[in-house]
Each structure stands twice: as structure tokens, then as C-alpha cells.
Design a protein around this nucleic acid. Structure first.
Length: 376
RNA sequence: GGGUGAGUAGCGAAGUGGUCAAACGCAGCAGACUGUAAAUCUGUUACUUCGGUUUCGGGGGUUCGAAUCCCUCCUCACCCA
């Protein structure tokens, strides 16, 4: 276990596997379950670190692939690590770049050694291996590093996935061997797609290895909703109860609440910030597309009762409509902050509900308010 | 007063005799976005009872057929007096 790192479970909901806990890190504690905003390039787009913290966020994500290209891991290391570099005093986590390889799928070439793919910036041929990624993540120096995995596409054959999972597991061992920083936690990543046997086996084998936490990967890459629910169930089953569980890349309300119900502690997603920038705002009664003409003269506050800087600041829908239509930076900021605050408030409600042993009910009531099964 | 050039859909701008209801860009309208190649992407934008109907400054003409050729008028820009 990494220095100063650990999960403390305070309470399990009586009606499901949802757990209330605290994640201890060298940069402070976080209440679980939690939503983690994504700051790929060492910034949550348009929002200062202090503002992110004020929204109630614990961990901020950064991406080792992106940072390794610019400004390079060496520069971040010279700055004293990503927290000092971006001046965030809370805990951080770096993703390994496994997801980017999936995202840049056209250019990939997977071998036992690693993955070759092309830079999205200049097309340069890059090669990531478990060892090179561990080197990058240790230089960047976040509190939590992620293993380098293969995020297989969906759908693939059982045979393909079996090979892919086996390789991801071999890479997980190599990541452990290459990871020497004692002040940085390392999480393993459960893959296996929609195959129950592979998900369960992958989780079981990772659980036997000395990781500080476990994450569920390979979801939200285009598969149907019911498949996504299944993947989480399969993966969670064999994960150790006393280690943090992290569902990667999930930010829609229904998936988050489903994950919490099953005992997942951590979620991250670009959804709130990206949707915000594009004018799709999350509210307790569903999604508001603020660009729509109907909001041009809607002088109501975005969401009554919301304590985000946009709503608490008294900014109207008409004003946000105007700002987003004009691509004004302030509009991107306000809308991003609103969505992040909204998701974090849902998590705060979840924690309260777990403490009161009524999370299943909370989940049902929250979903019912949205008017559609996905939330937004 | 004389000359030259130009007037095309909300705006800008292609098109110079048929395949033009008219490229493309912008604006508009609607939608998508899930470990951020993402302030991006997709669809749509004369009218229509979906059979068609009326458009390319106005009017008239040539032609089987005109945004495209001719006449005339209007407007704008520039040049010469």
C-alpha cells in the first residue's frame, strides 16, 4: 500500500452494496462515493483549481498521454509534480493513456511489448509500454496512477477479448514491477468486455496482486446500456471489499447511481464539462439545451436552488444562452461549473442516503425526476 | 454630364444557355457528446396539402429551355469631367 493512501469504509447501506467511505491520500481525504472532474491537460477546462475544489471535488484527473506530449513528463517533474505545476493542493489521479489508444484506434498496433500508435498532435509514431507509462506517471507524480491496459473495442469476439485480457493482466504485473514510487498508489484495471467469465477472472487475478485500488475499464465506449450495467456487475463481484473501486469514464447519472448501488466508490467523466461547454446543462429535472431558441428570453435562474456559481450568482438562462451562442469563455466556465456542481451534489446526496441506509430509494427518486432512463 | 464594374437565398460568395431550388462559408434551427484528437461533430435552413409552386435588383424580350444572352429602368462602387 502506498504511503498515506487507503480506504476507510464507514458504512454499508443496508439495502445494497453502496458504501460510504473516506479515501486517504497524501493530499487530503475525500468522501466516497465521489465524482472526479477530468483535467486532461492539468486543467479542468476553464476552471481554476481553487474553483474546482470549491465545487466540492476531491480528486482531479489528468492524463499521462496528453501531458507526456505537452509539456512532457520531464517538465512536469521539474515543476515538482503535477499538483505543484497546476497549483492544486488536493489529490490527483493520472490515467495511463490506455483509453487514448482506443480512441486513436485507427493508428494502433498492439504487440506483447506495448502499443504503437500515432500522436494526435503531429502524427508521430509513438510506442507506449507498461514500463514507459509507469515512468511517465511516476514523473507526473499524481497520488494515484493507473495501469497501462488495453481498452478493447466493443464488440469483439470472446477469443479476442480473452487474449486481450490475458495481455492486460501481464501488463498489470509489469506495471507493478516498474512502479517504484512509494508515495503513489497504483490501480489495476479490470477488462473483459461483456463476457462474464473474463470479467470475473480478470478481477479475481488483479485482486490477488498488490494494487492499492481497482478500476473497471472498457465501459461507455458505445455499448448498449444494459451491457454496461452487466459489465459493472461482473467486474465488481471479485474485487476486494477493502480496496477502492473506480468505474472509469462514467458520468451519466444512471450509470453512476447503478455503480454506487453495486459498491463502486469513484467515478470520473468529461461529460459534465464537455456538455457544459456545448450548452447542455444538467438539472434535477433533466437536460436543458441552453442554446435552444426558447431560452433567448428566459430570464429565470438556470436551476432554482442550485448553489453553483452560475445559479447562485443569479445568471439567467437568457444570459447563459447568449454567452454560449457567442462562444464566450465566461459562458463555458459557468456552464462547466454548473454541471460539475450538479454531479457532485448528486454524490453528496448519495452519501447522505447511504448513511441513512436508504440509497436504493435515493437512486430511484433521483432517476424518476429526470423523465428519461439515462438522466441526460 | 461621360465611362467602367457590380447587383444571386438572413449575410458573404460560387455559378456565365439545359444535369440550378442554385456549390461553399457564416449566421439561424435542431440534435449528439461518457478513463477530453472535442468552444467539437451531425442533421437542417425559399414555399408546399409533397403532386408541385414561385425564385437569382425591377420590367420587357430572344430561345424548346435563361441566374446565365439582348433591351430598358433602378441601386451601389470606382474612374473621368
Amino acid at each position: 500500500m502506498a504511503e498515506g493512501f487507503g480506504l476507510e469504509i464507514l458504512h454499508k447501506d443496508a439495502g445494497c452494496n453502496a458504501r460510504l467511505g473516506v479515501l486517504h491520500t497524501l493530499h487530503g481525504d475525500c468522501e466516497l462515493p465521489m465524482f472526479m472532474p477530468v483535467g486532461t491537460l492539468a486543467t479542468v477546462k476553464h476552471i481554476s483549481p481553487a474553483e474546482v475544489k470549491a465545487l466540492g471535488a476531491g480528486v482531479i484527473l489528468a492524463n499521462s498521454y496528453h501531458l507526456s506530449l505537452r509539456p512532457t513528463a520531464e517538465v512536469v517533474a521539474k515543476a515538482g509534480g503535477v499538483q505543484k505545476f497546476m497549483r492544486y493542493d488536493g489529490p490527483m489521479l493520472t490515467d495511463s493513456g490506455g483509453f487514448q489508444v482506443w480512441s486513436l484506434a485507427k493508428n494502433k498496433g498492439i504487440t506483447e511489448e506495448g502499443i504503437q500508435f500515432r500522436s494526435h498532435l503531429d502524427g508521430a509514431l509513438l510506442k507506449f509500454t507498461p514500463e514507459s507509462v509507469m515512468d511517465i506517471e511516476q514523473k507526473i507524480g499524481a497520488d494515484i496512477a493507473m495501469c497501462f491496459d488495453e481498452c478493447a473495442p466493443y464488440p469483439v469476439t470472446h477469443e479476442y477479448m480473452e487474449n486481450s485480457v490475458a495481455r492486460t493482466l501481464r501488463w498489470a504485473r509489469r506495471c507493478l514491477a516498474a512502479h517504484t514510487r512509494k508515495d503513489q498508489a497504483l490501480f489495476g484495471i479490470v477488462q473483459g468486455g461483456d463476457f462474464q467469465d473474463l470479467r470475473e477472472a480478470c478481477a479475481a487475478e488483479l485482486a490477488s496482486l498488490p494494487f492499492d485500488g481497482y478500476s473497471i475499464g472498457g465501459t461507455s465506449i458505445g455499448e448498449p446500456r444494459e451491457v454496461e450495467y452487466r459489465m459493472v456487475s461482473y467486474a465488481v463481484k471479485n474485487l476486494p471489499w477493502d480496496k477502492p473501486r473506480y468505474l472509469m469514464g462514467v458520468g451519466s447519472i444512471d450509470m453512476i447511481l447503478d455503480g454506487v448501488y453495486k459498491g463502486v466508490d469513484m467515478f470520473d467523466c468529461v461529460l459534465p464539462t464537455r456538455l457544459g461547454r456545448h450548452g447542455a446543462l444538467m438539472t434535477a429535472t433533466g437536460r436543458i439545451n441552453i442554446k435552444a431558441a426558447q431560452y433567448a428570453e428566459d430570464f429565470r435562474i438556470l436551476e432554482e436552488g442550485c448553489d453553483c456559481p452560475a445559479c447562485a450568482g443569479g445568471f439567467t438562462r437568457a444570459y447563459l444562452h447568449h454567452l454560449i451562442k457567442c462562444d464566450e469563455g465566461f459562458g463555458l466556465r459557468l456552464c462547466s461549473m454548473h454541471n460539475i456542481r450538479f454531479l457532485i451534489r448528486v454524490m453528496e446526496g448519495a452519501r447522505k442516503a447511504i448513511a441513512a441506509d436508504c440509497f436504493p430509494q435515493y437512486r430511484e427518486e433521483t432517476m424518476a425526476r429526470f423523465g428519461n432512463e439515462r438522466g441526460f
